[in-house]
């Protein structure tokens, strides 16, 4: 196992809404000797749905500024959010391959005394868990507490982001292997690739909830999953708040609700870290049925 340090880009969702993911991540990486550095001054990534569509120049300049901060910290950048990963991945690609966009970003950054970064390393938490820690190490240290837990794996759209077509399945496959290494039992619900509906929510809420989320949840429910494992806080929010909205507005409910956990939380549980130690109970959705399945 490699010893590493990362400059963690927490984004907006995790620090402001889901602190349990941050705690779980710190504890899990700490358990494997991977250090997290909190760089100062990051802004929103910025988000790949609203800001990029409004003005790509602003979007790229802000992303480049975040990359400059990471470069100054001297550590590779890491993220626990698919949306942040999407933005930073695409920004790096644009800065490395598009001379016109790079020049524009350089001009903008120079106004605040910064230069376009030279070294831009980005890792998703799924890659860190799989490549730096390794599924064999997770499996070895797993306390087998999750043996009774049946989970539906939801990679989320941006996890399929890759430079080449042949690698689009790489990170989702890593996620599946990490989940299996925790001892939890993945269920086949048939539409793993299907979007949770989060991006559609800011356009047409009813479509997002009824046509996307409810369909996915129904298949997950029918497959007998005890919970959904995500690797994106935005998907997490869509699943949790979306279920509350589905029940309130459309009377669509799945018993008392299907619990949602981030993959680092699942790994934390498998390592024997107690739910209350990382704040699993702070989720907006139900989590007690996960706790009751722990051995």
């Amino acid at each position: 196992m490699k010893s590493k340090e990362y400059s963690m880009f927490w984004g907006c969702w995790v620090p402001m809404r889901q602190p349990s993911i941050e705690v779980a991540c710190r504890k899990v990486l700490g358990r494997f000797g991977i250090e997290i550095r909190d760089a100062e001054g990051f802004s929103c990534c910025p988000d790949p749905v609203v800001t990029e569509r409004l003005q790509r120049e602003m979007w790229l300049a802000l992303a480049a500024r975040n990359l400059v901060i990471a470069e100054k910290a001297g550590k590779p950048l890491a993220t626990v959010c698919n949306g942040c990963y999407e933005t930073l991945f695409e920004a790096i690609d644009a800065l490395e391959t598009d001379a016109v966009q790079r020049e524009k970003a350089a001009t903008t950054l120079s106004r605040i005394g910064l230069a376009v970064p030279q070294r831009m390393d980005l890792r998703h938490i799924v890659e860190i868990l799989f490549e730096d820690i390794g599924v064999e190490n997770i499996e070895k240290l797993s306390s087998k507490r999750l043996r009774r837990l049946k989970v539906a794996v939801h990679p989320g759209c941006h996890l399929y982001r890759s430079h080449t077509r042949d690698k689009t399945q790489e990170k989702p496959k890593m996620l599946e292997q990490i989940v299996s290494a925790t001892g939890a039992k993945p269920v086949d619900y048939g539409i793993m690739r299907f979007c949770c509906g989060y991006p559609h929510r800011v356009v047409e809420e009813e479509f997002s909830l009824k046509m996307m989320l409810a369909r996915k949840l129904q298949r997950i429910w029918d497959a007998g999953a005890d919970c959904v494992v995500v690797c994106c806080p935005a998907c997490n929010i869509q699943f949790e708040f979306g279920q509350l909205e589905l029940k309130r507005r459309y009377n669509i409910a799945f018993d008392s609700g299907i619990p949602i956990v981030h993959v680092v939380e699942l790994v934390a549980l498998s390592l024997g870290i107690k739910p209350e130690e990382f704040g699993l109970q702070t989720h907006r959705g139900p989590t007690s049925s996960i706790v009751s399945k722990l051995e």
């Binding site: 349990s20 941050e22 909190d38 001054g41």
Partner: peptide, 8 residues
């Protein structure tokens, strides 16, 4: 949860 200050 004793998380550090958000430095954004």
């Amino acid at each position: 949860l004793q998380l550090p200050e958000v430095k954004t």
